[in-house]
């Protein structure tokens, strides 16, 4: 937009700062919670500035640093593979769908859309993947089920292409003798950088945060688990230890900070996403801004 009104600009400025604050404060609460002693949390609840600082949650986690690093690595492998594959699948599906002249376009849209509404449920999906494709306890089990292509993002991308890339450009390219693949690579992709960045980011988040695939499809080879599954395991064991009802014969469980640890684990899980985000930012979103200024 081209802004000349100072008042509007200031309003937007203040508004954005306000948004940052409402998102940061709870996160700050989380970080504060992760360094507050367990007793303090239980008795006085959460405070923006902890009265009694304790790093016991992080100390407890430090013992598992090797496992955490390994799981990070796994998560990166899973996410990067998944995002790359997903970008290819999504783009290849979205571009033809954006072509209003494609015969059978409505049927294909419906074919895509139905997958968003109806699903067979966990057990049948599990049947298909484990009995037909035998992906149990393989890396594919972490990557393929349910995450590889998101109909929602395909539709978003299709809509973006329809509304942002004028037919005339493609028509002109075709007149110049460019094939469909060439149109896609030379024209559509460069002009679709913002939505590609968004799709990549959303898919990355989905992969990064996913833990259900790890639970359902990885049973024995837990070394294939990514960070979410690993952190979940730590959390489950700490909680179980502390809350064990049946048998009293156990280690001293009072020393395990379960609530503080939950906070610490959340912090650990989120940090890499924050680190990765600016990368997507730079290569896609800013790319288009600069590109369009030039053009």
């Amino acid at each position: 937009m081209i802004i000349k009104s100072k008042a509007f600009y200031t309003t937007a400025y203040v508004f954005v700062i306000f948004l940052i604050l409402i998102c940061v404060i709870p996160f700050w609460l989380l970080i504060a919670g992760s360094v507050t002693s367990e007793a303090e949390l239980l008795v006085h609840g959460y405070a923006l500035i902890p009265k009694e600082v304790s790093f016991s949650a992080f100390e407890f986690l430090w013992q598992m640093k090797d496992g955490i690093l390994q799981a990070y690595l796994m998560s990166i492998v899973i996410s990067v593979t998944g995002v790359s594959a997903s970008l290819v699948l999504t783009t290849l599906f979205a571009y033809p769908l954006s072509r209003k002249d494609l015969p059978g376009r409505n049927a294909i849209s419906l074919f895509l859309f139905i997958t968003m509404l109806f699903n067979g449920g966990l057990v049948p999906t599990y049947f298909v993947y484990t009995r037909l494709f035998h992906i149990k306890d393989t890396l594919a089990g972490m990557i393929v089920p349910s995450l590889l292509m998101n109909a929602f993002l395909v539709i978003m991308m299709r809509t973006y292409i329809t509304s942002s890339i004028p037919d005339e450009i493609l028509e002109a390219a075709r007149v110049d003798g460019a094939g469909e693949f060439r149109c896609l690579l030379a024209i559509v992709l460069p002009l679709s950088k913002p939505i590609l960045g968004t799709v990549a980011l959303m898919t990355f988040i989905a992969y990064w945060n996913n833990w259900t695939n790890g639970i359902y499809y990885i049973q024995q080879k837990t070394e294939l688990h990514g960070i979410q599954n690993y952190l979940k395991r730590i959390m489950d064991s700490a909680t179980m230890l502390q809350q064990q009802l049946a048998s009293s014969i156990n280690m001293d469980t009072r020393s395990i900070p379960t609530i503080g640890m939950r906070m610490a684990l959340a912090v650990i899980a989120v940090i890499p996403v924050l680190a990765v985000y600016p990368f997507f930012q730079k290569s896609f979103v800013q790319g288009i801004t600069i590109g369009s200024v030039k053009g």
């Binding site: 139905i114 109806f118 699903n119 067979g120 449920g121 049948p124 089920p145 349910s146 109909a151």
Partner: peptide, 11 residues
Amino acid sequence: LIINNYLPMFG
């Protein structure tokens, strides 16, 4: 989509 969504729809 056929593998991930349509085949399990027997469910």
